[in-house]
Every structure is written in C-alpha cells, then in structure tokens.
C-alpha cells in the first residue's frame, strides 16, 4: 500500500481549505479597521473594544455560559445513567422504547424538539401552574434533554469498549458494586465523561432554535442576540466574537490533547 495517490492528498488539502479558509477569513476581518469585508484599511483592535462595551452581547454571553454549564452537568448525570443502562443492564422491560428515546434526539430536527418542548411547558403551566414564566429554567431543561442523548452515546460506546473482566475481578475479590463503580469503572470512563460534558456544553452554547422556542421575555441567549444582529447585516464586532470563540476552542483542545496524552501515558504505566 505504499503507492502514492497524489489526487487523494489533493482532495484532502482542498477539503481542509474549504473547512478552514472561511474561519481564517473571520479571524482576519476581526482585526480590520474598516467596516467593509472587501477593503483592508489597517490593523486594529477597535472591534474587540466595541464588543467589550456591548452590554447586550456580554450579558447574553454570560447567560449562555451559565445555561451551558448547568445543562452540560445535568446531561452528564442523565446521559451517564442512560449509557450505563443501555450498555450494562441487559434486557429490561421497555428497553426498545428507552433506546429509541435516547437515540432520537441525535437526529431530531431542532424545530420539532423546540416546538414540542414549548407546547409541553405551556400545557404544564396550564395544568400545574409551573413553569409560571419561561426563561433560563425552561431553556436549561430543553438543553439537558437533547444533550443527554449525546452523552449517553459517548458513554455507552466507551463502556462497550472496555474489558468487563476488570469489574468482575474486583467483584470476585469482594468489592461491593458501588466500590467497583467508584474505583474501577469511573476512572476508566472518565475521558468519555469529560468529552461528553464538553460536547453537551458546546451544543448548549451553540443552540439557537431550541432556545428561541423555549425562552421567555427575560432570557436572551448569545446565539439569539447574534442571530438578530446578523439579520441586520454583518458587523466586525461579530467577527471579533467569532475569533474569541475560536481562540477559546483552540486552547481547550490543546489542553484536552495534553491531558489525553498524560492520561494515556499514565494508563500505559
């Protein structure tokens, strides 16, 4: 298989160019002094200053980060339990329904998830009086629900991969189920838990459609602000915001890779 196929490398390069040139353009334009995307009038940080002074955007960003942190944590708990149930509990009554409910949110169009949750909240409010007002709580519940599916898939596939004999050995040596879980299972699936949490966090931070349906007057998330700003036209402030997000993602990724390397090195020892 040493024969080189030059067109393959070319296709790969073209693919990466397609993926990264638009992102590079956003970063470049965020430092452009001009408002226009087609003329470069000099290097400037003015859009970053403008972004910092935009109270609406900063407030929405803080709100979005809070919702993302809470819903990622909720989804981590529920998704880990669900992944565990699917990977380890074997047959149980209602397993087919459970499996379908866990997997469906992965492919469900967002408009349907958003609309159905909103109608649920309205119906619940009519019957029970809760939720009295839609806002942060309802968005968080909606995000937990769809992110749980992603965490469950990650955890389930990690559990399916690793050697159950480790757990069995611990049981044979007299460890109680909880001890086995805490000392054997949990450390082994920790990387999957970390990536599941990060995935849920990112999905929540990025969601426009479901948040728009389930939000109320008081709660405007970052994507909602960005979306209504984009409808009015592009502004370099938005490019600056994009650049900050890209920088944050890159830093997290480098950290995750470092940690992953340390973890896999530790596992080898």
């Amino acid at each position: 298989m040493s024969r080189r196929l030059p067109w393959l490398g070319l296709a790969l390069g073209a693919g990466y160019a397609f993926l990264y040139l638009p992102i590079a353009l956003l970063v470049l334009l965020s430092f452009n002094d001009s408002r226009l995307v087609t003329s470069w009038t000099g290097f400037s940080f003015r859009w970053y200053t403008a972004l910092w002074n935009n109270d609406q955007l900063v407030g929405a960003a803080i709100l979005s980060l809070r919702i993302a942190a809470v819903s990622a944590t909720g989804a981590l708990v529920l998704g880990t339990l669900a992944g565990f149930a699917l990977a380890r509990l074997g047959a149980f009554r209602g397993r087919t329904l459970f499996g379908a409910m866990v997997a469906s949110p992965l492919v469900m169009p967002e408009v349907i998830t958003g609309l159905s949750l909103l109608l649920l909240f309205v119906a619940l409010a009519a019957v029970t009086g809760w939720p009295g007002e839609r806002g942060v709580t309802t968005i968080t519940i909606a995000h937990i629900t769809f992110a749980t599916a992603y965490v469950a898939v990650v955890v389930q596939s990690r559990l399916a991969d690793f050697d159950e004999s480790l757990e069995e050995a611990a049981m044979d040596l007299g460890a109680r189920p909880w001890t086995v879980f805490a000392t054997i299972t949990l450390p082994l699936i920790a990387p999957a838990l970390a990536s599941g949490w990060l995935l849920a966090f990112t999905l929540s931070l990025d969601d426009l459609v479901i948040a728009s349906f389930t939000s109320g007057p008081g709660a405007t998330t970052l994507p909602m602000v960005v979306f209504s700003a984009m409808r009015l036209g592009l502004t370099p402030e938005l490019f600056a915001l994009a650049t900050i997000i890209i920088a944050m993602v890159s830093v997290c990724l480098v950290l995750a890779l470092r940690l992953g390397r340390v973890a896999s090195a530790a596992a080898r020892v």
């Binding site: 960005v226 984009m230 938005l238 915001l241 994009a242 997000i245």
Partner: peptide, 8 residues
C-alpha cells in the same frame, strides 16, 4: 466553533 458564526 459556533454554527451561526460559520454561517456568517
């Protein structure tokens, strides 16, 4: 990275 900003 953000879906909306990539569309932008």
């Amino acid at each position: 990275t953000s879906f909306l900003l990539r569309v932008m």
